[in-house]
Design a binder for these strands. Structure first.
Lengths: 238, 238
DNA sequence: TAGATTGTTAATCGATTAACAATC
DNA sequence: TAGATTGTTAATCGATTAACAATC
Protein backbone atom coordinates (compact mmCIF):
# COMPACT_ATOMS: atom_id res chain seq x y z
CA UNK A 1 0.00 0.00 0.00
CA UNK A 2 1.13 3.46 -0.84
CA UNK A 3 2.21 5.58 2.05
CA UNK A 4 0.67 8.97 2.69
CA UNK A 5 3.21 11.50 1.42
CA UNK A 6 4.51 14.12 3.78
CA UNK A 7 2.77 17.45 3.34
CA UNK A 8 6.03 19.08 2.36
CA UNK A 9 6.98 16.47 -0.19
CA UNK A 10 3.57 16.86 -1.71
CA UNK A 11 3.87 20.58 -2.23
CA UNK A 12 5.80 20.91 -5.47
CA UNK A 13 3.59 23.47 -7.11
CA UNK A 14 5.91 26.32 -6.22
CA UNK A 15 3.12 28.66 -5.32
CA UNK A 16 3.92 31.31 -2.70
CA UNK A 17 2.57 30.62 0.76
CA UNK A 18 -0.79 32.04 1.72
CA UNK A 19 0.76 34.87 3.73
CA UNK A 20 2.41 36.29 0.61
CA UNK A 21 -0.70 36.15 -1.48
CA UNK A 22 -2.67 39.00 -2.90
CA UNK A 23 -6.06 38.91 -1.31
CA UNK A 24 -8.00 40.07 -4.35
CA UNK A 25 -10.44 37.41 -5.36
CA UNK A 26 -12.80 38.32 -8.16
CA UNK A 27 -16.30 39.13 -6.99
CA UNK A 28 -17.75 39.48 -10.45
CA UNK A 29 -18.56 36.27 -12.31
CA UNK A 30 -15.71 35.55 -14.72
CA UNK A 31 -16.89 34.59 -18.23
CA UNK A 32 -16.16 31.10 -19.49
CA UNK A 33 -14.00 32.32 -22.34
CA UNK A 34 -11.74 34.06 -19.83
CA UNK A 35 -11.54 31.04 -17.51
CA UNK A 36 -10.36 28.90 -20.40
CA UNK A 37 -7.42 31.25 -20.85
CA UNK A 38 -6.45 31.35 -17.19
CA UNK A 39 -4.24 28.22 -17.23
CA UNK A 40 -2.27 29.87 -20.01
CA UNK A 41 -1.75 33.00 -17.95
CA UNK A 42 -0.91 30.80 -15.02
CA UNK A 43 1.88 29.02 -16.90
CA UNK A 44 3.36 32.20 -18.31
CA UNK A 45 3.24 34.03 -15.00
CA UNK A 46 4.79 31.08 -13.16
CA UNK A 47 7.64 31.15 -15.65
CA UNK A 48 8.14 34.88 -15.08
CA UNK A 49 7.85 34.49 -11.32
CA UNK A 50 10.45 31.71 -11.33
CA UNK A 51 12.77 33.95 -13.33
CA UNK A 52 12.37 36.65 -10.67
CA UNK A 53 10.66 39.05 -13.04
CA UNK A 54 8.64 41.41 -10.89
CA UNK A 55 6.53 43.39 -13.31
CA UNK A 56 5.17 42.95 -16.80
CA UNK A 57 3.19 45.18 -19.13
CA UNK A 58 0.21 43.96 -21.07
CA UNK A 59 2.26 44.44 -24.26
CA UNK A 60 5.03 42.15 -23.00
CA UNK A 61 2.63 39.55 -21.68
CA UNK A 62 0.81 39.71 -25.00
CA UNK A 63 4.08 38.79 -26.70
CA UNK A 64 4.56 35.76 -24.46
CA UNK A 65 1.03 34.44 -24.41
CA UNK A 66 0.14 35.16 -28.01
CA UNK A 67 -3.04 36.90 -26.89
CA UNK A 68 -3.75 40.53 -27.76
CA UNK A 69 -2.87 43.21 -25.23
CA UNK A 70 -6.41 44.67 -25.03
CA UNK A 71 -7.86 41.21 -24.51
CA UNK A 72 -5.36 40.55 -21.81
CA UNK A 73 -6.25 43.76 -20.01
CA UNK A 74 -9.92 42.91 -20.26
CA UNK A 75 -9.22 39.47 -18.80
CA UNK A 76 -6.98 40.63 -16.00
CA UNK A 77 -9.32 43.35 -14.82
CA UNK A 78 -11.41 40.59 -13.19
CA UNK A 79 -8.55 40.32 -10.72
CA UNK A 80 -8.88 44.07 -10.28
CA UNK A 81 -6.21 46.40 -9.06
CA UNK A 82 -3.16 44.30 -9.87
CA UNK A 83 -2.08 46.56 -12.66
CA UNK A 84 -0.70 50.03 -12.21
CA UNK A 85 -1.05 52.69 -14.89
CA UNK A 86 2.26 53.72 -16.36
CA UNK A 87 3.97 50.68 -14.82
CA UNK A 88 2.37 47.34 -15.62
CA UNK A 89 1.23 44.34 -13.62
CA UNK A 90 2.75 42.91 -10.46
CA UNK A 91 3.78 39.42 -11.57
CA UNK A 92 3.73 37.83 -8.15
CA UNK A 93 0.36 39.19 -7.14
CA UNK A 94 -1.19 38.32 -10.47
CA UNK A 95 0.31 34.84 -10.39
CA UNK A 96 -0.86 34.06 -6.89
CA UNK A 97 -4.27 35.53 -7.56
CA UNK A 98 -4.85 33.42 -10.64
CA UNK A 99 -3.42 30.33 -8.93
CA UNK A 100 -5.77 30.81 -6.06
CA UNK A 101 -8.74 31.40 -8.30
CA UNK A 102 -8.00 28.22 -10.26
CA UNK A 103 -7.64 26.30 -7.03
CA UNK A 104 -4.02 25.34 -7.64
CA UNK A 105 -2.32 24.67 -4.35
CA UNK A 106 -5.35 22.96 -2.89
CA UNK A 107 -4.98 19.28 -2.15
CA UNK A 108 -7.12 16.76 -3.98
CA UNK A 109 -7.34 13.00 -4.15
CA UNK A 110 -8.19 10.97 -7.23
CA UNK A 111 -8.77 7.51 -8.61
CA UNK A 112 -7.72 6.46 -12.09
CA UNK A 113 -10.37 4.29 -13.69
CA UNK A 114 -8.98 2.25 -16.56
CA UNK A 115 -5.39 1.03 -16.49
CA UNK A 116 -4.78 0.92 -20.24
CA UNK A 117 -2.13 2.93 -22.03
CA UNK A 118 -3.52 6.26 -20.95
CA UNK A 119 -4.45 5.28 -17.39
CA UNK A 120 -0.96 3.93 -16.84
CA UNK A 121 0.66 6.98 -18.38
CA UNK A 122 -1.32 9.32 -16.13
CA UNK A 123 -0.55 7.20 -13.07
CA UNK A 124 3.15 7.23 -13.82
CA UNK A 125 3.42 10.86 -14.81
CA UNK A 126 3.86 13.54 -12.20
CA UNK A 127 1.21 15.70 -13.83
CA UNK A 128 -1.45 15.15 -11.20
CA UNK A 129 0.98 15.39 -8.33
CA UNK A 130 2.27 18.70 -9.69
CA UNK A 131 -1.23 20.09 -9.47
CA UNK A 132 -1.75 18.86 -5.94
CA UNK A 133 -3.69 15.73 -6.88
CA UNK A 134 -2.78 12.52 -5.11
CA UNK A 135 -3.69 9.27 -6.86
CA UNK A 136 -5.19 7.02 -4.22
CA UNK A 137 -6.20 4.08 -6.40
CA UNK A 138 -6.14 2.59 -9.88
CA UNK A 139 -8.98 0.42 -11.19
CA UNK A 140 -9.63 -1.76 -14.18
CA UNK A 141 -11.99 -4.46 -15.34
CA UNK A 142 -9.47 -6.78 -16.96
CA UNK A 143 -7.85 -9.70 -15.13
CA UNK A 144 -4.73 -9.01 -17.15
CA UNK A 145 -3.93 -5.91 -15.10
CA UNK A 146 -5.79 -6.43 -11.82
CA UNK A 147 -3.27 -7.13 -9.09
CA UNK A 148 -0.40 -5.66 -11.09
CA UNK A 149 1.34 -2.57 -9.78
CA UNK A 150 1.01 0.76 -11.55
CA UNK A 151 3.03 3.61 -10.06
CA UNK A 152 2.97 2.15 -6.53
CA UNK A 153 -0.74 1.37 -6.77
CA UNK A 154 -2.05 -2.17 -6.96
CA UNK A 155 -4.71 -2.23 -9.68
CA UNK A 156 -8.07 -3.15 -8.17
CA UNK A 157 -11.19 -4.50 -9.80
CA UNK A 158 -13.52 -1.73 -10.87
CA UNK A 159 -16.36 -3.30 -8.87
CA UNK A 160 -14.55 -2.11 -5.74
CA UNK A 161 -14.41 1.50 -6.89
CA UNK A 162 -17.65 2.64 -5.28
CA UNK A 163 -16.73 1.47 -1.81
CA UNK A 164 -13.19 2.74 -2.27
CA UNK A 165 -14.35 6.25 -3.13
CA UNK A 166 -16.72 6.31 -0.18
CA UNK A 167 -14.07 5.17 2.28
CA UNK A 168 -11.14 7.24 1.02
CA UNK A 169 -12.57 10.72 0.51
CA UNK A 170 -11.83 10.65 -3.22
CA UNK A 171 -12.37 14.03 -4.89
CA UNK A 172 -11.76 13.31 -8.57
CA UNK A 173 -12.52 10.34 -10.82
CA UNK A 174 -10.25 10.18 -13.85
CA UNK A 175 -11.96 8.19 -16.59
CA UNK A 176 -9.63 6.39 -18.99
CA UNK A 177 -12.13 3.85 -20.21
CA UNK A 178 -14.04 3.27 -23.46
CA UNK A 179 -16.81 5.74 -24.26
CA UNK A 180 -19.64 3.26 -23.77
CA UNK A 181 -18.63 2.52 -20.17
CA UNK A 182 -18.25 6.13 -19.08
CA UNK A 183 -21.85 7.00 -18.26
CA UNK A 184 -22.24 3.78 -16.27
CA UNK A 185 -19.12 4.61 -14.29
CA UNK A 186 -20.52 8.05 -13.53
CA UNK A 187 -23.64 6.44 -12.11
CA UNK A 188 -21.50 4.16 -9.97
CA UNK A 189 -19.44 6.92 -8.44
CA UNK A 190 -22.34 9.29 -7.87
CA UNK A 191 -23.11 9.71 -4.21
CA UNK A 192 -19.68 8.53 -3.12
CA UNK A 193 -18.44 12.05 -2.43
CA UNK A 194 -16.53 12.34 -5.70
CA UNK A 195 -16.72 16.03 -6.63
CA UNK A 196 -15.33 16.09 -10.15
CA UNK A 197 -14.85 13.95 -13.24
CA UNK A 198 -11.93 14.26 -15.60
CA UNK A 199 -13.07 12.40 -18.66
CA UNK A 200 -10.60 11.21 -21.29
CA UNK A 201 -13.07 8.97 -23.07
CA UNK A 202 -14.48 10.03 -26.42
CA UNK A 203 -17.95 10.82 -25.17
CA UNK A 204 -19.57 13.99 -23.96
CA UNK A 205 -20.38 14.01 -20.27
CA UNK A 206 -21.86 17.09 -18.70
CA UNK A 207 -22.38 18.38 -15.21
CA UNK A 208 -26.16 18.32 -15.64
CA UNK A 209 -26.36 14.56 -16.12
CA UNK A 210 -23.40 13.54 -13.96
CA UNK A 211 -24.22 15.83 -11.06
CA UNK A 212 -20.69 17.09 -10.47
CA UNK A 213 -18.35 19.21 -12.61
CA UNK A 214 -16.96 17.36 -15.62
CA UNK A 215 -14.15 18.30 -17.94
CA UNK A 216 -13.89 16.32 -21.15
CA UNK A 217 -10.58 15.98 -22.93
CA UNK A 218 -10.58 13.96 -26.10
CA UNK A 219 -7.35 13.35 -27.97
CA UNK A 220 -9.10 11.77 -30.94
CA UNK A 221 -11.18 14.91 -31.48
CA UNK A 222 -8.16 17.12 -31.26
CA UNK A 223 -6.37 14.94 -33.84
CA UNK A 224 -9.30 15.27 -36.21
CA UNK A 225 -9.20 19.04 -35.94
CA UNK A 226 -5.51 18.94 -36.83
CA UNK A 227 -6.31 16.74 -39.82
CA UNK A 228 -8.93 19.24 -40.90
CA UNK A 229 -6.49 22.12 -40.66
CA UNK A 230 -3.86 20.18 -42.55
CA UNK A 231 -6.19 19.50 -45.42
CA UNK A 232 -6.47 23.25 -45.99
CA UNK A 233 -2.76 23.28 -46.77
CA UNK A 234 -1.46 21.70 -49.92
CA UNK A 235 1.27 19.08 -49.75
CA UNK A 236 4.18 20.83 -51.44
CA UNK A 237 6.15 17.63 -52.00
CA UNK A 238 5.71 15.98 -55.37
CA UNK B 1 12.01 -2.39 -38.90
CA UNK B 2 8.28 -2.16 -39.03
CA UNK B 3 6.65 -3.51 -42.14
CA UNK B 4 4.38 -1.37 -44.25
CA UNK B 5 0.85 -2.49 -43.35
CA UNK B 6 -1.43 -3.72 -46.10
CA UNK B 7 -3.81 -1.02 -47.29
CA UNK B 8 -6.77 -3.14 -46.19
CA UNK B 9 -5.43 -3.88 -42.72
CA UNK B 10 -4.83 -0.19 -42.27
CA UNK B 11 -8.41 0.82 -43.02
CA UNK B 12 -10.20 0.37 -39.73
CA UNK B 13 -12.02 3.65 -39.70
CA UNK B 14 -15.23 2.05 -40.95
CA UNK B 15 -16.03 4.90 -43.27
CA UNK B 16 -18.07 4.01 -46.36
CA UNK B 17 -16.11 3.74 -49.59
CA UNK B 18 -15.85 6.81 -51.78
CA UNK B 19 -18.47 5.54 -54.21
CA UNK B 20 -21.13 5.65 -51.49
CA UNK B 21 -20.29 9.11 -50.32
CA UNK B 22 -22.36 12.20 -50.57
CA UNK B 23 -20.57 14.60 -52.83
CA UNK B 24 -21.58 17.75 -51.00
CA UNK B 25 -18.50 19.52 -49.75
CA UNK B 26 -19.10 22.88 -48.12
CA UNK B 27 -18.16 25.81 -50.35
CA UNK B 28 -18.75 28.44 -47.70
CA UNK B 29 -16.05 28.88 -45.09
CA UNK B 30 -17.10 27.02 -41.94
CA UNK B 31 -16.66 29.06 -38.73
CA UNK B 32 -14.16 27.84 -36.16
CA UNK B 33 -16.78 27.29 -33.50
CA UNK B 34 -18.59 24.90 -35.83
CA UNK B 35 -15.42 23.01 -36.79
CA UNK B 36 -14.70 22.38 -33.11
CA UNK B 37 -18.05 20.61 -32.83
CA UNK B 38 -17.61 18.47 -35.92
CA UNK B 39 -15.70 15.62 -34.21
CA UNK B 40 -18.62 15.35 -31.81
CA UNK B 41 -21.10 15.07 -34.66
CA UNK B 42 -18.74 12.61 -36.31
CA UNK B 43 -18.71 10.31 -33.29
CA UNK B 44 -22.47 10.41 -32.79
CA UNK B 45 -23.22 9.86 -36.46
CA UNK B 46 -20.77 6.97 -36.68
CA UNK B 47 -22.56 5.36 -33.75
CA UNK B 48 -25.92 5.81 -35.48
CA UNK B 49 -24.53 4.59 -38.78
CA UNK B 50 -23.09 1.48 -37.15
CA UNK B 51 -26.46 0.79 -35.58
CA UNK B 52 -28.07 0.97 -39.05
CA UNK B 53 -30.10 4.04 -38.20
CA UNK B 54 -30.87 5.74 -41.47
CA UNK B 55 -32.39 9.06 -40.51
CA UNK B 56 -32.35 11.40 -37.57
CA UNK B 57 -34.11 14.64 -36.75
CA UNK B 58 -32.33 17.64 -35.29
CA UNK B 59 -34.35 17.11 -32.09
CA UNK B 60 -33.10 13.52 -31.72
CA UNK B 61 -29.53 14.42 -32.58
CA UNK B 62 -29.78 17.26 -30.11
CA UNK B 63 -30.67 14.71 -27.43
CA UNK B 64 -27.61 12.59 -28.25
CA UNK B 65 -25.04 15.33 -28.69
CA UNK B 66 -26.23 17.61 -25.92
CA UNK B 67 -26.25 20.55 -28.34
CA UNK B 68 -29.40 22.55 -29.03
CA UNK B 69 -31.49 21.64 -32.05
CA UNK B 70 -31.36 25.13 -33.64
CA UNK B 71 -27.60 25.23 -33.22
CA UNK B 72 -27.32 21.84 -34.80
CA UNK B 73 -29.37 22.91 -37.79
CA UNK B 74 -27.24 26.00 -38.16
CA UNK B 75 -24.11 23.87 -38.08
CA UNK B 76 -25.33 21.21 -40.47
CA UNK B 77 -26.55 23.65 -43.08
CA UNK B 78 -22.90 24.11 -44.08
CA UNK B 79 -23.14 20.60 -45.48
CA UNK B 80 -26.25 21.82 -47.28
CA UNK B 81 -29.04 19.70 -48.59
CA UNK B 82 -28.55 16.67 -46.34
CA UNK B 83 -31.70 17.38 -44.38
CA UNK B 84 -35.19 17.01 -45.70
CA UNK B 85 -38.05 19.08 -44.32
CA UNK B 86 -40.62 16.96 -42.53
CA UNK B 87 -38.23 14.00 -42.41
CA UNK B 88 -34.84 14.73 -40.89
CA UNK B 89 -31.23 14.15 -41.89
CA UNK B 90 -29.80 11.25 -43.85
CA UNK B 91 -27.36 9.73 -41.35
CA UNK B 92 -25.09 8.08 -43.86
CA UNK B 93 -24.74 11.11 -46.10
CA UNK B 94 -24.18 13.42 -43.17
CA UNK B 95 -21.66 11.05 -41.63
CA UNK B 96 -19.65 10.60 -44.79
CA UNK B 97 -19.79 14.29 -45.55
CA UNK B 98 -18.45 15.31 -42.17
CA UNK B 99 -15.85 12.53 -42.24
CA UNK B 100 -14.65 13.72 -45.60
CA UNK B 101 -14.58 17.33 -44.51
CA UNK B 102 -12.52 16.45 -41.44
CA UNK B 103 -10.15 14.42 -43.55
CA UNK B 104 -10.86 11.15 -41.78
CA UNK B 105 -10.11 8.26 -44.09
CA UNK B 106 -7.06 9.95 -45.54
CA UNK B 107 -3.74 8.29 -44.82
CA UNK B 108 -1.14 10.13 -42.77
CA UNK B 109 2.26 9.31 -41.35
CA UNK B 110 3.62 10.57 -38.04
CA UNK B 111 6.57 10.58 -35.71
CA UNK B 112 6.25 10.59 -31.95
CA UNK B 113 8.81 12.89 -30.39
CA UNK B 114 9.37 12.09 -26.74
CA UNK B 115 9.08 8.52 -25.47
CA UNK B 116 8.03 9.29 -21.91
CA UNK B 117 4.77 8.16 -20.35
CA UNK B 118 2.61 9.95 -22.86
CA UNK B 119 4.72 9.23 -25.94
CA UNK B 120 4.71 5.55 -25.11
CA UNK B 121 0.98 5.54 -24.41
CA UNK B 122 0.23 7.17 -27.76
CA UNK B 123 2.57 4.79 -29.56
CA UNK B 124 0.92 1.77 -28.00
CA UNK B 125 -2.64 2.93 -28.34
CA UNK B 126 -4.55 2.38 -31.53
CA UNK B 127 -5.85 5.92 -31.47
CA UNK B 128 -3.68 7.21 -34.31
CA UNK B 129 -4.13 4.10 -36.40
CA UNK B 130 -7.89 4.39 -36.03
CA UNK B 131 -7.72 7.81 -37.59
CA UNK B 132 -5.55 6.66 -40.46
CA UNK B 133 -2.26 7.83 -38.96
CA UNK B 134 0.68 5.46 -39.19
CA UNK B 135 3.48 5.96 -36.67
CA UNK B 136 6.73 5.69 -38.62
CA UNK B 137 9.18 6.52 -35.86
CA UNK B 138 9.62 7.29 -32.17
CA UNK B 139 12.32 9.64 -30.91
CA UNK B 140 13.78 10.66 -27.59
CA UNK B 141 16.81 12.39 -26.17
CA UNK B 142 17.49 10.05 -23.26
CA UNK B 143 19.91 7.13 -23.48
CA UNK B 144 17.60 5.28 -21.14
CA UNK B 145 15.04 4.73 -23.90
CA UNK B 146 17.03 5.07 -27.13
CA UNK B 147 17.35 1.64 -28.70
CA UNK B 148 14.44 0.23 -26.75
CA UNK B 149 11.35 -0.90 -28.59
CA UNK B 150 8.07 0.99 -28.26
CA UNK B 151 5.13 -0.49 -30.14
CA UNK B 152 7.30 -2.13 -32.81
CA UNK B 153 9.38 1.02 -33.20
CA UNK B 154 12.98 1.25 -32.10
CA UNK B 155 13.40 4.55 -30.28
CA UNK B 156 15.89 6.74 -32.14
CA UNK B 157 17.89 9.70 -30.94
CA UNK B 158 16.08 12.95 -31.55
CA UNK B 159 19.06 14.30 -33.49
CA UNK B 160 18.07 11.92 -36.28
CA UNK B 161 14.53 13.25 -36.51
CA UNK B 162 15.17 15.90 -39.15
CA UNK B 163 16.71 13.49 -41.64
CA UNK B 164 14.09 10.88 -40.81
CA UNK B 165 11.21 13.22 -41.57
CA UNK B 166 12.81 14.29 -44.84
CA UNK B 167 13.38 10.73 -45.99
CA UNK B 168 10.12 9.18 -44.87
CA UNK B 169 7.45 11.64 -46.00
CA UNK B 170 6.31 12.28 -42.45
CA UNK B 171 3.11 14.34 -42.28
CA UNK B 172 2.59 14.90 -38.56
CA UNK B 173 4.97 15.52 -35.65
CA UNK B 174 3.50 14.53 -32.31
CA UNK B 175 5.24 16.46 -29.54
CA UNK B 176 5.35 14.72 -26.16
CA UNK B 177 8.28 16.65 -24.77
CA UNK B 178 8.74 19.33 -22.11
CA UNK B 179 7.43 22.80 -22.95
CA UNK B 180 10.84 24.41 -23.20
CA UNK B 181 11.99 22.04 -25.94
CA UNK B 182 8.91 22.35 -28.11
CA UNK B 183 9.73 25.50 -30.05
CA UNK B 184 13.22 24.20 -30.79
CA UNK B 185 11.76 20.96 -32.10
CA UNK B 186 9.44 22.93 -34.34
CA UNK B 187 12.43 24.72 -35.84
CA UNK B 188 14.15 21.41 -36.43
CA UNK B 189 11.28 19.83 -38.28
CA UNK B 190 10.43 22.90 -40.36
CA UNK B 191 11.27 22.40 -43.99
CA UNK B 192 11.26 18.63 -43.71
CA UNK B 193 7.84 18.28 -45.29
CA UNK B 194 6.01 17.84 -41.97
CA UNK B 195 2.60 19.41 -42.50
CA UNK B 196 1.13 19.44 -39.03
CA UNK B 197 2.08 19.50 -35.34
CA UNK B 198 0.08 17.83 -32.61
CA UNK B 199 1.42 19.40 -29.46
CA UNK B 200 0.87 17.79 -26.05
CA UNK B 201 3.38 19.97 -24.25
CA UNK B 202 2.18 22.73 -21.94
CA UNK B 203 3.13 25.61 -24.23
CA UNK B 204 1.22 27.51 -26.85
CA UNK B 205 2.44 26.92 -30.37
CA UNK B 206 0.65 28.58 -33.26
CA UNK B 207 0.58 28.18 -36.99
CA UNK B 208 2.00 31.67 -37.52
CA UNK B 209 5.28 30.91 -35.77
CA UNK B 210 5.59 27.23 -36.64
CA UNK B 211 4.58 27.60 -40.27
CA UNK B 212 2.23 24.61 -40.39
CA UNK B 213 -1.09 23.90 -38.65
CA UNK B 214 -0.73 23.20 -34.94
CA UNK B 215 -3.22 21.80 -32.50
CA UNK B 216 -2.35 22.15 -28.83
CA UNK B 217 -3.76 19.74 -26.29
CA UNK B 218 -2.75 20.29 -22.70
CA UNK B 219 -3.91 17.91 -20.01
CA UNK B 220 -2.57 20.08 -17.19
CA UNK B 221 -4.69 23.03 -18.35
CA UNK B 222 -7.77 20.90 -18.58
CA UNK B 223 -7.17 19.61 -15.05
CA UNK B 224 -6.90 23.16 -13.75
CA UNK B 225 -10.22 24.06 -15.31
CA UNK B 226 -11.77 21.07 -13.57
CA UNK B 227 -10.26 22.20 -10.28
CA UNK B 228 -11.73 25.65 -10.86
CA UNK B 229 -15.17 24.22 -11.49
CA UNK B 230 -14.94 22.00 -8.45
CA UNK B 231 -14.12 24.90 -6.19
CA UNK B 232 -17.50 26.44 -7.08
CA UNK B 233 -19.16 23.44 -5.48
CA UNK B 234 -19.06 22.93 -1.77
CA UNK B 235 -17.75 19.68 -0.33
CA UNK B 236 -20.84 18.20 1.28
CA UNK B 237 -18.90 15.74 3.43
CA UNK B 238 -18.11 16.83 6.95
C1' DT C 1 -54.21 17.06 -46.95
C1' DA C 2 -52.02 17.49 -42.36
C1' DG C 3 -48.15 16.83 -39.53
C1' DA C 4 -43.39 17.09 -39.11
C1' DT C 5 -39.18 19.15 -39.55
C1' DT C 6 -35.81 21.68 -42.01
C1' DG C 7 -33.67 26.06 -43.66
C1' DT C 8 -33.48 30.80 -43.01
C1' DT C 9 -34.06 35.21 -41.15
C1' DA C 10 -34.04 38.24 -37.26
C1' DA C 11 -33.02 39.04 -32.42
C1' DT C 12 -30.14 38.35 -28.72
C1' DC C 13 -26.19 37.52 -26.44
C1' DG C 14 -21.32 37.38 -25.55
C1' DA C 15 -16.56 38.10 -26.81
C1' DT C 16 -13.02 40.76 -29.03
C1' DT C 17 -10.96 44.89 -30.66
C1' DA C 18 -10.19 49.85 -30.79
C1' DA C 19 -9.58 54.09 -28.69
C1' DC C 20 -8.57 57.12 -25.23
C1' DA C 21 -9.09 59.30 -20.74
C1' DA C 22 -7.28 58.47 -16.18
C1' DT C 23 -3.29 58.17 -13.57
C1' DC C 24 0.96 56.27 -11.98
C1' DT D 1 6.48 67.27 -15.71
C1' DA D 2 6.33 63.84 -19.46
C1' DG D 3 6.10 59.23 -20.85
C1' DA D 4 4.09 54.95 -20.14
C1' DT D 5 0.51 52.00 -19.48
C1' DT D 6 -3.67 50.63 -17.33
C1' DG D 7 -8.79 50.61 -16.91
C1' DT D 8 -12.90 51.59 -19.18
C1' DT D 9 -16.13 52.72 -22.59
C1' DA D 10 -17.84 52.16 -27.17
C1' DA D 11 -17.75 49.74 -31.55
C1' DT D 12 -17.34 45.67 -33.91
C1' DC D 13 -17.58 41.12 -34.68
C1' DG D 14 -19.15 36.44 -34.23
C1' DA D 15 -21.97 32.89 -32.19
C1' DT D 16 -26.26 31.32 -30.28
C1' DT D 17 -31.14 31.29 -29.78
C1' DA D 18 -35.87 32.11 -31.26
C1' DA D 19 -39.35 32.04 -34.52
C1' DC D 20 -41.59 30.78 -38.48
C1' DA D 21 -42.20 30.25 -43.40
C1' DA D 22 -41.06 26.76 -46.76
C1' DT D 23 -41.75 22.20 -48.03
C1' DC D 24 -41.32 17.31 -47.71
Amino acid sequence: MKKVPEQQEFDITGIPAIADRATAVPDEQIPDAVIKRLPRYFRCLRELYNRDIMKISSAELSEITGLSAPQLRQDLKYFGGLGQRGYGYNVKKLYTCISEYLGVGKKYTAVIIGAGNLGKALSNSRLLEQRGVWIKGVFDISDKVIGKTVADNTVRHVKEVKEFCKNNRVDIAVLCIPANESTELCDIISGTGVRGVWNFSPCELDEKSVGVPVVNICAADSLMILMREMSEIKDKRQ
